[in-house]
Amino acid sequence: MKRSLHIETASHLKVAKVGLRAFQRVGNFVKPTTRFIQTFGRFASKAKLQINMGQLQTLLEGGEIPVDLKLDNGYVVLSTDEDRVLGLGLLINGKIRSQLPKKEIRSAMLM
């Protein structure tokens, strides 16, 4: 959008929201948003993990899934078996916790 010829024309408008939010601050950390990851996560070359519906269910219920990833602790791009990017998980000491928005993704969606 930065490269759009119309940005200058629109610059005097009082705006409430611009484009697709990429990051948000969580405490002292910067976290990519779910929607940003869903749009661009397919370009990730590492720190990504495919999970099945059972594992997704576990995450949505607040559980953790053990994984064997040679990665430092941090965010991991989660995708389904069919490589559909869901959002982020958080890898801590060999276990993934959900960072998916609870209000927007529900167990009913896994039927």
Partner: peptide, 8 residues
């Protein structure tokens, strides 16, 4: 995934 919109 809309990236070319602003809200007023």
């Amino acid at each position: 995934g809309v990236m070319n919109a602003v809200v007023t």
